[in-house]
Amino acid sequence: MINKVVQTASEAVADVFDGATVMISGFGEAGSPIELIHALIDHGAKNLTIVSNNTGNGHVGLAALIGNRQVRKMICSFPRTAHSVVFPELYKKGEIELELVPQGTLAERIRSGGAGIPAFYTPTSVNTPLAEGKETKEIDGNLYVLEYGLKADFSLVKCRTADRHGNLLYNKTARNFGPIMCMAAKAAIVQAKEVVDLGMIDPETVVTPGIFVNKVIEIANPLSENQLIKEERRYPWR
């Protein structure tokens, strides 16, 4: 029998090892798997490379993981946002590495990584500083930049609904990087607001087929990053 459902967040992230590459879904707070990230902080794996669009807000979730000095390198498209305070401070001190990737290139590198495409040519970033040192090729009279697919050891993803096979439905704009990050990781770890019985999800509406998912944990009432930031909370809680 296939049952990808685990009972605790700590069990879900137990296999993450020092030096792993971990993709974390979310566009800002929307879709960020805060309970899984906090479990990873408790777990303590270090020297991580994190692939995520942003660098977290306040002192909770991804920002807390970075603040806890578990992250060696960030691969992202937009590391400074209104409430991002932890990453900028470490970056200015030269204590964390940044690989800046245009957002569409980041998405396509992740999709490719999951789809068995090792590299691709894109028009994005041609003739800009972000293409410096990269191979280019002229195709039909236009110049393109060679970009490599991205794979991860683990991805941490948030969704709305899951079943025990790992079929997933998302919620509105919280879908963002979730589906492609499930594809690109050796082990996709998903927190769902609800886990339903097999057969309850209409196959026509499945967004992420279960084959891309390894572990599912139900977090019925995830924390609101916005709310925690308003309350100036920090993780680990103190």
Partner: peptide, 16 residues
């Protein structure tokens, strides 16, 4: 030199 670079989707938008 001290600014934190951030690009988002701008480079994709202008190309496509």
């Amino acid at each position: 030199p001290k600014a934190i670079p951030a690009v988002g989707g701008a480079m994709d938008l202008v190309q496509g």
